[in-house]
Design a protein around this nucleic acid. Structure first.
Length: 624
DNA sequence: AGGCCGTACTG
DNA sequence: CAGTAC
DNA sequence: GCCT
């Protein structure tokens, strides 16, 4: 602890409060008196600086304070004995709150009701509503989630009902996490969850896209325990919009309905197609990946957690990997820097242990556990081996157990499958990212060859390319053709295409191809790069037009996005795979007899989103 | 205590 | 069926 | 590691 603090101070990381933009100065005009009255403890120092960032002043004179922020470990009597004997001379006495209060305000970007029970200091008597009800210092007390500002009373109750249970933080978390943003921009039009780039976008940073993301993910979370049986049968097919509306986020606490409504309608009133095209092109640029990662105030935290995640992935700690992945995903959505354990802990998917790690990262700029991990000498070998195509952690572990540490060792001793041999021999090539331009060029080569065989066939480049990536690990080609209903109708074509491209010396290796006969639908292999003799990974996926929508989702990813979609589907008793969206009739007891389920939609990507109740996201908005 | 996506291909 | 890839 |  002490070490950590010292280090943090030395590096000056926590003592440089950056000032927030005007519209985030929620504490303007407020002054906080802290108990204990010092910033020695690093955690408190952080909190004080945070409050300053958001416009608060730190006072050490009780008489000028608007709020007294008390350490949670202290008792109310500790505060009481500081109270001036002659009162405050007619002036409104400061409100006494726990240290959670400023944090909540910051998190929700609004002055929340200070009289909530959760902000009571130990042993503090509950006070009558009246005194606390008003926030006299505040010019605009309803700086709040857009729509709620419409009706003060509603907004008030909504805000004060914020996180009722700090313990089981999830409920509270989920209700509000997605709600951050810059309410002032939206005025009473409600938070524009759908057309984010409207107007304000150009002017300044717009966390709204990120909001959509959190919203989506939070929605998944919420659906976990919901019955959702609201006549889905009928709705699903016939009235997508209706079900969309129903399934949207309004299953939460009643106090939020107002905002729900606004959000819904704003989404309904989505701009016409032309407007979309324009705005989305813009959104593409900033929602893509670059900005999302660079702008993120938690970039450093994410970076380190990602390394940690990578480590667990390597050592095959599957479930821990999942936990980290979720946490990282949540963190990426935050538009605010998460600096303290408590703050982190409020977030969904972040529990005690991760929260502690996050605080450690913020204060010390590193993570002990990671340094340990990276010192492990076998880890480097592990990393190397895992980048061989066809080698996963089982094999890699075996090799390491044999004492092998380098590719050279493997080359000499290991018995390789044909795929692994290719992976070995072209290790460097296959681990070199492919610039977007080259993906385009290679795609064109294939398209040209395809057109000569069957002009009706369409080729779509999927994967990260479709998400707008500047470079890709491989080239994913979706092969489809209007009017096709099954993979079988495309197999002959693919076979001819492959043959031709091999004759052309374009394709140079097969890694995994559907053998003759089977219901194979994929082909994995390598091709020559466009400009240099460098090998590239290329995949073909056969997709009948009837399943194009589902396949596009699957092959566009990213993987986290896909898993989320599927998880959501399963929570709604549906099933999503690369072939379509199905309603589950039943999941067999020993899973042997899974009833396929009835196909709901597969052709239309957008319809699948709609039926799932997920707002449409353009491919480049699918980076999680 | 038990789940954490769901599928295709290889050997 | 386990392992791997997507 | 997180969540129900």
């Amino acid at each position: 602890m002490a070490t950590k603090a010292t280090r943090g101070n030395k590096r000056g990381r926590i003592s440089a409060p950056s000032v927030r933009p005007e519209d985030e100065q929620i504490f303007k005009g407020l002054s906080f008196f802290y108990v204990p009255d010092n910033d020695i403890a690093p955690a408190r120092r952080l909190r004080i600086n945070r409050a300053k960032e958001f416009g608060a002043s730190w006072t050490r004179d009780l008489m000028t304070a608007t709020h007294v922020v008390v350490d949670k470990k202290l008792e109310y009597k500790d505060v009481e004995k500081m109270w001036p004997k002659d009162g405050f001379g007619g002036r409104t006495p400061p409100k006494v709150v726990t240290e959670d209060y400023p944090l909540d305000c910051i998190q929700f970007r609004a002055i929340v009701d200070a009289s909530q029970r959760k902000y009571l200091v130990n042993g503090q008597p509950e006070v009558e509503e009246k005194e606390q009800e008003k926030e006299p210092e505040l010019p605009t007390p309803a700086v709040d989630f857009g729509a709620q500002a419409k009706s003060k009373s509603k907004s008030k109750s909504a805000v004060s009902s914020l996180p009722l249970k700090p313990q089981h933080h999830n409920k509270g978390k989920w209700d509000y996490v997605p709600r951050k943003g810059t309410p002032s921009q939206n005025g009473d039009t409600g938070i524009q969850t759908h057309s984010p780039s409207k107007g304000s976008d150009k002017a300044g940073h717009t966390p709204l896209l990120q909001d959509e993301l959190s919203e989506y993910i939070s929605m998944m979370q919420e659906f976990k325990d919901l019955p959702l049986d609201v006549d889905e049968e009928e709705d699903a097919q016939s009235t997508a919009n209706e079900s969309d509306a129903q399934l949207d986020l309004d299953h939460r606490s009643g106090s939020e309905n107002e905002s729900q409504r606004a959000r819904r309608s704003s989404r309904r009133a989505r701009p016409t197609s032309k407007a979309i095209a324009f705005e989305d092109r813009f959104a593409c640029n900033r929602a893509g990946k670059k900005d999302a990662n660079q702008d993120n105030p938690n970039a450093r935290t994410i970076e380190i957690l990602q390394k940690m995640n990578g480590y667990y992935e390597r050592i095959n700690d599957h479930w821990r990997t999942i936990a980290y992945r979720k946490a990282i995903s949540i963190l990426k959505q935050q538009s605010v820097k998460i600096t303290t354990e408590e703050e982190a802990y409020r977030l969904p998917s972040i529990g005690r242990r991760l929260a502690q790690k996050i605080e450690e990262i913020v204060t010390t700029d590193k993570l002990q556990r990671l340094e340990c991990a990276e010192e492990d000498p076998t880890d480097h070998a592990l990393q190397t081996f895992l980048k061989i195509y066809g080698v996963g952690n089982k094999i890699a572990e075996q090799w390491i157990a044999q004492g092998w540490r380098t590719l050279e060792d493997v080359k000499q001793h290991a018995k390789l499958t044909p795929s692994q041999r290719v992976g070995m021999e072209h290790y460097d090539d296959l681990n070199t990212r492919i610039p977007r331009m080259e993906v385009t060029a290679l795609g064109d080569i294939v398209k040209k060859a395809a057109a000569e065989i069957d002009a009706a066939v369409q080729l779509i480049i999927g994967g990260s390319y479709r998400r707008g990536a500047e470079s890709s690990h491989d080239i994913d080609l979706i092969v489809t053709k209007p009017g096709t209903e099954s993979v079988a109708e495309l197999r002959a074509f693919l076979s001819r295409l492959i043959d031709q491209l091999e004759r052309d010396k374009f394709l140079v290796a097969r890694l995994a191809s559907s053998h003759a006969g089977g219901d194979g639908s994929k082909w994995h292999g390598c091709c020559n790069g466009e400009y240099r003799p460098i090998w590239r990974r290329i995949d073909f996926l056969l997709v009948p037009e009837a399943e194009l929508g589902a396949a596009l989702i699957y092959f566009t990813g990213n993987d986290i996005f896909n898993r989320s979609m599927r998880l959501l589907a399963s929570k709604k008793r549906m099933r999503l795979n690369q072939r379509g969206l199905y309603r589950d009739v039943l999941r067999g007891p020993n899973r042997a007899k899974i009833t396929e389920g009835e196909l709901v939609e597969s052709r239309d990507e957008k319809r699948i989103f709609e039926i799932l109740g997920v707002k449409w996201r353009e491919p480049w908005e699918r980076w999680c």
